[in-house]
Design a protein around this nucleic acid. Sequence first.
DNA 1: TTGACATAGTAAACGGCGTTCACTCAAATG
DNA 2: CATTTGAGTGAACGCCGTTTACTATGTCAA
Lengths: 245, 245
Amino acid sequence: MTAPTRRERLRTATLSEIKDGARRLLVTGGIEAVSLRAIARDMGMTAPAIYRYFPSLEALVVGLAGDLYDELRQEVEAARDRSGPDPAGQLLEMCRALRRWAVGHPAEFTLIFGNPVPGMIEFADGCGDPDHPGARLGAVFLTPFVELTRGRPLPTPPAELLQERLGGHLAPLAANHGPLPIDVAYAFLSAWTRLYGLVAMEVFGHLGWAVDEPEALFETELISQLRQFRPAEPGDALPEGGARH
Amino acid sequence: MTAPTRRERLRTATLSEIKDGARRLLVTGGIEAVSLRAIARDMGMTAPAIYRYFPSLEALVVGLAGDLYDELRQEVEAARDRSGPDPAGQLLEMCRALRRWAVGHPAEFTLIFGNPVPGMIEFADGCGDPDHPGARLGAVFLTPFVELTRGRPLPTPPAELLQERLGGHLAPLAANHGPLPIDVAYAFLSAWTRLYGLVAMEVFGHLGWAVDEPEALFETELISQLRQFRPAEPGDALPEGGARH
DNA sequence: TTGACATAGTAAACGGCGTTCACTCAAATG
DNA sequence: CATTTGAGTGAACGCCGTTTACTATGTCAA
C-alpha cells in the first residue's frame, strides 16, 4: 500500500471528472445526451482520449449505473439507520427513501430501473452475482423484511399453493440471498414489485391520468401494505377485514 | 365520402409502409435502431422523403406508440370477450393478455410503458384526454373492475383514511373516467400499479435475480390479488385469513 | 544522466445519424 | 394545354462513436 504516484492521482482525477460530466449530462438531458464528445468537450479534451479510461460509451454508462446503485443503496441504508430498531418502521423509511431518491433523480432512476439501454442489458443480466449492485440493494430491503415476518403467519395464499406454483422457480433468489420460507419469499417479491410499480409509474409519468399528487398514493399504499404484516390483535380491525362483514 | 384518388391511395400505402418499417426496426433492434435513414433504406427511398409524412422522427415514434396502445387494447378486449360474463374471470384473462402481449412484444411494451424517449414525454403528458390511447386502455380495465367491486366492501384501508390521504388528489381520474367511490378508485390504482410493476420488471429484466420463471410469480400474484375481491363465504379460507390463526 | 518504455492526449478520418434546402418530375386541376 | 401541387432526390451541415497514426510527457532502469 504505497502512496499513489503522480500519474495515478491524475488518472483517478480524470476518471471521476469523466463520470461527473457524464452524470451532469444524464441529469440535464437524459441518457441520450450522454455522449463521449459532449463529455470531452466539457472537459476541454477530445473524445478519443476517453478511450484511455473506458473501452466504449456503453462501458462508461454501465460504470455510472453501478455508482448510482451504490448511491441509492447508501441513501436507503442511511434512512434505515436513522429509523429505530423496529423493522416495520425501518422498511417504511427505506421505501420512502427509495421513492425520494427516485423522484429527486428521475434520470438516474430511469437509467438503473427503466428499460435497459444497450449496454445495460448485460449489466442487468449479471445481477445473479450477490456482489452485483442491484443484488446488494435488494439485500438491504430483504434483511428487515425477514425480521419483520419471522415466525409470523403472512397474508399470502396458503404455503401449499405457493409451493406448487412457485416452489421450483425461486432458485435465483435462494442462490443470492440464501434459502427462505416460501411465504416469506413470495411476500417479499410481491412487496418489491408493488414498490417498483408505484415508483416507476410515477417517475415515468404513467400516473398523470389518475392522480395529481403521486406521493399521496404512495403513502396510502405503503401504509396499507405494512398493515398487512402487523400481528393480529383481538378487536383490531385490519384493513382487509372489511371484506368480512 | 368520395372514392379516394390515386394519390391518396399511394399516400396511405406509403404511410403504413413507413410505420411497418419503423416497427420492424423497433422489434429487431430496439428503439435506438429506429432511424429515418434505415426506414427509408428498407423502402428503397431516401430519408428526407419521410418528412412528407412525418415532421420528425419523434413524431413518427409517437404515432407508432399510439398504434401500439390500440393494438394492446384490442388484444385485451378480445381476451375479455373470449371470457365469460363474470368480471373476475374477465379481469383474470385481461391481465394475462396484457402480460402475454408485453412478453411477446418487449420492444413495443418498452416504448409505450417504459421510460419515455424524448418525443414520448409530451405523449405521456397528454393522457389526461379520455381519447388518449393510454386512457382508453385504462378504461377497458376499469369497467369490469367497477362491476366486480360494486356494492361490496373492499380490502382497503377504511374509507375515512383514504378520503383524508387521497381524497383531494384523484381529480384526473375523475375527469377521465367519471367519479368513483374512493375505495374503488384506490383499489383500482393499487391493482393497476401492481400489475404494471410485475410486468414491467419481467420485461425489463429486473426479476432475473429472484425467479427463473416470471410467469409463475405473475400467476400467483394474480390469483392472490383476485381472491381479495371474492365475496366472503363461511368456511372459506381466504388467503389473508392466514394472519388470523 | 540518459535512454527506453508506457501513458495521455491529439488530429484526421469513416460511416451513421436527423434535418434543411434547392431541385426535379409526375400527377392533379383549371 | 398550362399551372399548380405533391412526392421524392441529392447535397450539405453538424452531430455522434470509434479507429488509426502520431506526438508529447511522465516513469524508471542502466
